[in-house]
Design a protein around this nucleic acid. Structure first.
Lengths: 228, 228
DNA sequence: ACCTGAACACCGTTCAAGT
DNA sequence: ACCTGAACACCGTTCAAGT
C-alpha cells in the first residue's frame, strides 16, 4: 500500500510572502483532473495552469509528482475509508469485511493504480483495516507472523485484482481493436489445450465477471486451514 | 497476462529495399537495455541509436512502444517458460506447479511489470500453463466456470505479488530515505492498533520474506474446498 | 519497402531572479 | 517565503521526402 502524509501540511509561518495557492487547493484540483480525465492527463504543467499558477509554484508545496500522487491517494482514502460503526464479531468475517472495504474504495479510483504499486503500506486511514485483518487472522488461531503473511497475501490478491482490472478497462477504452486475447482464443488447438478450447467462447464474459469476493473467501478460508 | 505476437514477423517480401534492421535485432537490443538498466531507460530514441538507426525506423517494425514491450515479454516468455517433461499427476499439485512456473519466470523480469498489467492474457507460451491450472482445478471437482474464476484469482494473486515486490524493490534502489511505512510504524498507538504495534519492529523483515508459495497453497486449498 | 530529417506537441525539473 | 520566466534535457509520434 502507500504512505501517510509525507509531511504534515507544512507549519505555515506568519513571516514572508502570503501563499497564493495551498496544498489543499492543489490536491483538490489534481483530484478533479484525475477523476474527470484519468491519471495520464495529470501533468505538473496542466495542474499549474488549472490552479492559475506556474509549474514551479507547485514544487513549493510538494516535493515532486510522485509525492503529489501519494498525497492524492492519502487524501482520497482519508475521506472514503470510513470505519463501520460495528465491525463483525466473527473474526473471519472481520477479515473479509476489512479487505472488502479497502477493495471497494480502491476499485473506485483506478487512477490510484500507479500509486498502489509504489509502496507497500497504505495511508494511515487504512491502518485500522490492516489491524482488523491481522487481528482477525490471529484470533482465528494464526501466529502473529502468519497473520502478517496472511495479510500480505490478501493485499497481493486485492492489489492485483484492482491493477489488472483497471488497466484492462483503460485499454478497452483507448482501443477498439479486438484484444490479443480474442485472437489467441479464436484458434486454439483443442488437442493441445482442451480445457481452454472448451471455454474459449465463454472466456471474455467469464473473466469480465466480478469474482473478487469469491476469491477472497477462498483465500481467507485457505489461510485459516492447516495445509496438507 | 498479455498477448501473443500481435503480428507474425511480417511476411518479408523480396521486393523493395532490403531491411537494415530486423524485429529480432530490435528486440534483442531492447531486452539488453531493459535488463541492464531498467525499463525506464528504454526509449524509442535510445533504442534506435543502439541499433544504429533512427527512431522512425523502429516504427516500421513495431506499431508503437506498447507493442514493443508486449513483444519483448512474449519473446522472453517463449524462451524461459519451458514445460516440465512430466507435470505432477496429482491435479492440485499440477495447479501449484503451473502457477509457480509462471511466477518464477515473471519474477525474474521486473521490467515486465508494466506489460503484465496491460492485458489479461499471457503470451502463447504461457497458455499451456493456464491450461494446466484450469484442468487441475476441474479434475479436482470444480465446474469449468469456477475453474476459470479460480485461475483468475490465482493470476490476481501472482501478478499482485510480482508488481508490488518489483515496485518496492525499484523504490528502495532509487531512494534511500526511510520509507513512509517506517515512519508510520515508528509511532503507532498501541491502544488503537494493538496488533500492528506488537509487530511494528518485525514488520519490515516479515514482509521482506518470500511467502508466495504459502499464499498460493492457501488460495488453491481454499478454491478446492466448499466454502461455508 | 524501408529509412531519414525535421518538426510537433509535449514532459518533469533546475536555476537564477524577482517581490 | 513564495512565486516567476526561461531554460535544460528529454519524450513518443507524425509527416513529407528520399532511395
Amino acid at each position: 500500500m502507500m504512505g501517510p502524509m509525507p509531511q504534515p501540511p507544512a507549519p505555515r509561518k506568519t513571516t514572508g510572502r502570503p501563499a497564493r495557492i495551498s496544498r489543499a487547493e492543489i490536491l483538490r484540483t489534481a483530484l478533479r483532473i484525475v477523476t474527470d480525465e484519468g491519471v495520464d492527463r495529470l501533468t505538473m504543467r496542466r495542474l499549474a495552469s488549472e490552479v492559475g499558477s506556474t509549474p514551479m509554484a507547485l514544487y513549493h508545496h510538494v516535493r515532486d509528482k510522485e509525492e503529489l500522487l501519494l498525497l492524492l491517494l492519502d487524501d482520497y482514502a482519508a475521506q472514503h475509508l470510513r470505519r463501520p460503526p460495528a465491525p463483525p464479531t466473527d473474526p473471519r468475517e472481520r477479515v473479509i469485511a476489512a479487505a472488502t472495504a479497502i477493495h471497494e474504495v480502491l476499485a473506485a479510483c483506478p487512477w490510484a493504480v500507479e500509486v498502489l504499486t509504489a509502496d507497500d503500506l497504505m495511508s494511515t486511514s487504512a491502518l485500522w483495516f490492516v489491524e482488523q485483518i491481522v487481528d482477525g487472522l490471529t484470533v482465528c488461531g494464526l501466529s502473529l507472523e502468519s497473520a502478517v503473511h496472511g495479510y500480505r497475501a490478501i493485499w497481493y490478491y486485492t492489489a492485483g485484482e484492482i491493477v489488472i482490472r483497471a488497466t484492462a478497462a483503460r485499454r478497452r477504452a483507448a482501443d477498439d481493436r479486438p484484444t490479443y486475447r480474442d485472437r489467441v482464443f479464436a484458434d486454439l488447438d483443442p488437442d493441445e489445450l482442451p480445457r481452454l478450447a472448451e471455454v474459449a467462447d465463454r472466456w471474455a464474459p467469464l473473466t469480465a465477471q466480478d469474482t473478487y469476493a469469491e476469491g477472497l473467501t477462498a483465500l481467507v478460508n485457505g489461510l485459516l486451514t492447516r495445509g496438507d
